[in-house]
Amino acid sequence: MSLLELDRVCKRHRGRGRDVVVLDDGCLSIDPGELVAIWGLRHAGKTSLLRLAAGLDAPDAGTVRFDGRDLQTEGERLLGRELAYCQGASQLPGGRDVIDDVLLGLLVNGIAPAEARVRARAALARAGAESLATRLSSELDGADRARVAIAHAIAGKPRLVLIDEPVAGVDLHQRDCILLLLRCIADAGTAVLMTVGELTGLTGADQAMTIGEGELCGSGKRALQPVSDLDARRRATG
């Protein structure tokens, strides 16, 4: 059983008098420790896909399961604990110190203050953002904001990080450092599903995929087959 499974998911948005198909029979399967990168043009449905994968939006058809549990019914309980959803560097709040922002996320999820402070410091250190702890998010450049966003995501020790455009607005010279950081997080066992707006962001992913016009196209066979077919094959091959 995969960590995250989207099985024949359909999702439409109502927009300007017509339906926009975000995903049409989309299938995706992520295992622990995998880094999956999805590229698409603007408005191709990247963020919508992440919101479905986080259980923030419900699919019109099909199922989204996390560790076998239906996110439609259990998503609220899992989000912020086993699942971390991060809107990317551009969405960071700007009015508080970086450490307070990370702390707040942990406190909201019921972590005791002393423990939350230790975890926040550790997450910032792991993301290479320890020196930014007392800075305001609004003062940070693109790469630093990305590191802080990642620290936010990993502070709660989730099993899956969903991150929207982590390298958007990041200087070209720093881009690979951020990608490498996400690769390291995946290698340490936390699955990462991220969207990217530029194609170099697909480098080093275990699965590289594109999304557009409702279709999810992937580099691995797993991404192209309905999950149920995969399960059947796994059962058949033992």
Partner: peptide, 22 residues
């Protein structure tokens, strides 16, 4: 084209992220 796209995606994913900076 779908096959071509998948093979390009594989190429893309298969390349390692440079760890050296620029």
């Amino acid at each position: 084209l779908a096959g071509y796209e998948r093979s390009c995606l594989s190429d893309n994913a298969a390349s390692a992220i440079p760890s050296d900076g620029v």
